[in-house]
Design a protein around this nucleic acid. Structure first.
Lengths: 154, 154
DNA sequence: GTATCATACGTGACGTATCACGTATAATGT
DNA sequence: ACATTATACGTGATACGTCACGTATGATAC
């Protein structure tokens, strides 16, 4: 009977359903605001923020994907879309013929510069200011514990 | 200066990034296990669980979507896919010519019956058992606060 | 009765995210 | 040197989720 699956309690189900709900509602809300204000998507923002944070504005694809916590091919596809939009460009890697760099363009820098204030204001409104500092820290610890379980079960 | 957007602190950014990571990693992990074990998707499971929980195994589309916390057209598309797979069927509503019911089929009941144990075991492993009872309750409260902010900002 | 407004819901277009697969290059072993 | 293994990463296929739009039906006002 050790391994027999058990149905969730009512309370456990409630928390579980809320978590699932969050996985679609949160990105959707942010995407809607971003689309209205700037034409960017949340994925565009993540990539642009990541690239503008590194010294020469470029990163190797696989390492960058790891840093974002994304699947490699998710980044490849996203970069392809962003390249078509002129937000990033791919650059050959001189040292390693296998791979390439993703580099932010001037248009990309400009786009994220314009989009960031309103986007961050909404992130504040929805998440940061919804909780006390203690609670935000606590949320981070709890979500971190779940992410560790996910990583361990891969 | 009241409305000026502010950059997130390092700690706030960390929690924010973890939340974003969770929105893709959690469904992806559950989907992978479900696909391997049963060929169902997490969305299939949500619909089937929802339908097997109501008395005659059927529900009106708009109300059911609301209950799941889904966009209406998300459910319509999902039902179309599940109908093709024989998991549910649409039934005419006798009292209201505008709408229809989604009803679970025998195959659907069987599929969710087979898939549920392993799926719930993974939900337990990743979420429920990753936290103490107190922490799980706390997570629910914190996520609930964020969901309220999202609902309020729509 | 008719017109207008409201509601239910399905569909198309599109962007997104994962998985499988394949190609090109680098590293390693012999 | 050559063969084998490993790595980097791009692409296609598919399922998914949102938004816009449209049709059909019901409710309401006159």
């Amino acid at each position: 009977m050790d391994d027999s699956p058990q149905w969730l309690t009512v309370e456990q189900q409630r928390v579980w359903r809320e978590l699932l709900r969050l996985t679609t509602r949160l990105p959707a809300r942010l995407n809607r605001q971003l689309e209205e204000d700037s034409g960017l998507s949340l994925a565009d923002v993540d990539v642009l923020v990541g690239l503008t944070d590194v010294p020469d504005g470029r990163a190797r694809v696989t390492e960058f994907a790891r840093g974002l916590g994304w699947e490699r091919s998710r980044l490849s596809h996203q970069v392809a879309r962003m390249e078509r939009a002129g937000l990033v460009r791919r650059e050959v890697c001189e040292d390693d013929g296998r791979g390439s760099y993703v580099a932010v363009t001037d248009a990309g820098r400009s786009a994220i510069g314009s989009a960031a204030p309103a986007h961050l204001a909404l992130v504040r409104d929805l998440v940061v200011d919804a909780l006390s500092d203690d609670d935000l820290g606590r949320l981070g610890v709890l979500v971190g514990a779940v992410l560790e379980r996910i990583a361990a079960s891969d």
